[in-house]
Design a protein around this nucleic acid. Structure first.
Lengths: 166, 166
DNA sequence: TTACTCCGCGCAACGATCTTGCGCTCCGGC
DNA sequence: GCCGGAGCGCAAGATCGTTGCGCGGAGTAA
């Protein structure tokens, strides 16, 4: 609920947990300037209110043998809502597809995919994605190297904005 | 180091922590079938070996007022290494740019950006990104809705692959 | 102004968890 | 058969998570 505004301490908590999700509650409390019990209560509230959707270890794909990362731009034949939903459901079922976003503009969806090697991805591309119902066009782009990969949102921008509005 | 192979328990640990990064060590130990102390030692080893790069709370951008998410395809005038690195450095300095990946194919980079509203993004686009040195073309696509957003890698695919190779 | 209510903090205590040291077993090499 | 190393589980002390409770400040109404 966006009606429940966050105070500066809540925003600090979110920023700290976004930066280090395994931080101890007492360490977190120390950083945001309150004692441990109310800090934990705030975290629980933020979780239940949906501000925090979960916590995840950031695992290195290459170390685990996922050498290939690909962005796939997908165009569909029909943009009827039922067909869009059907394609999204397929994407959720494909483990190699990690993200699926519906776009405006000339392409309908952009997919972020990972694979152990190129041939695995090629097989997925030809036998699954391109072959799927309603898929009109697929243009893929291989990731050569990653320059930045930050999760979540920039809290400094948020703070600037709040300071200006106030 | 990829030379140090992971055993099934290590992979289970990574899978569990990717799914829930705040899981208690005793709970984790219970799930992977060993006692708490060696489990914690394994986690520390995985962290130091680089398999785990960190832990992050998954914060909902919309709840925090970041309503806009955009993918930007960027083409550069010069692809000399020095110019590529310079552009990557600029991306790292822009807080609205959350991800920056170098691609093969017709575009040079794809950027995932967030912004509180469209006008903020437009300002960034015209005054910063398009105006930056060496930027030849920028094509943006607004995210209408997100259908899937999974972090990390699909461990079930990894297990299948290892079972087949063995 | 005063009294009242509500919300959120801090304190304290208990239970759970983390963390370390240690001894044991298993396994491979000599 | 013996030895050495790696990895496990047990146990204990330190730290942390969790709950209940009392206190104080902000807002409201008389």
């Amino acid at each position: 609920m966006a009606s429940t505004r966050l105070d500066p301490i809540d925003r600090k908590i979110l920023a700290e947990l976004q930066a280090d999700g395994r931080m101890t509650n007492v360490e977190l409390a120390k950083r945001v300037g309150i004692s441990a019990p109310p800090c934990l209560r705030r975290v629980r509230t933020l979780e239940e209110a949906g501000y925090i959707r979960g916590y995840h270890a950031d695992v290195d794909p290459r170390e685990l043998g996922f050498e290939v990362q690909v962005f796939a731009n997908v165009g569909l034949q029909s943009q009827a809502e039922a067909d869009l939903s059907a394609f999204e459901a397929r994407c959720r079922a494909w483990p190699l597809v990690r993200e699926c976003h519906m776009l405006n503009g000339e392409v309908d969806f952009i997919l972020k995919c990972v694979a152990p090697d190129l041939s695995t991805f090629q097989r997925f591309l030809t036998e699954e994605l391109t072959a799927a119902a309603n898929v009109a066009s697929v243009k893929t782009a291989l990731v050569i190297r990653g320059a930045k990969d930050q999760p979540g949102v920039p809290f400094d921008v948020l703070e600037e904005r709040l300071a200006r509005d106030a």
